[in-house]
Amino acid sequence: MKKKILLVEDDLILVDLYEATLEMEGFQVLKATSGKEGLKILKKDTPDLILLDILMPEMNGFEFLKELKKIKTVKNVPVLLLTNLGESKLDINRELAFALGIEGYLIKSKNPPEQVVSRIKNVLETVGSL
């Protein structure tokens, strides 16, 4: 059975990129271009993993995460943060993210799509074996 990935990213070009890459790797992709849209999808569907952008208008990645944890059906779905923010303390609040329960984070410009895919595969394997 194809694994389902929910992609929450407001940059349309990047959405196309990740969607194309993931589909080529045999994943089914659900896409949302905003936090609100993402939560709507989650009401009907439960993905195997969520790829989440941080900087989005109206509802950013952190706020989405908080809402996610309130929904029983999906609060344990592994989340990988996708961001272009740098690693410095001021740019990404790593502690907060981990405290909210993410599996890891990837930096878009440093981790090309292939690396994102391997990371996803890693996470799914670990989760699957629990």
């Binding site: 940059d11 070009i13 990047l14 196309d16 990129l17 990740y18 890459t21 272009n84 878009k108 410009s109 090309p112 799509p113």
Partner: peptide, 8 residues
């Protein structure tokens, strides 16, 4: 972002 898309 656009550079990431390009290389991707």
């Amino acid at each position: 972002s656009p550079l990431t898309a390009m290389i991707g």
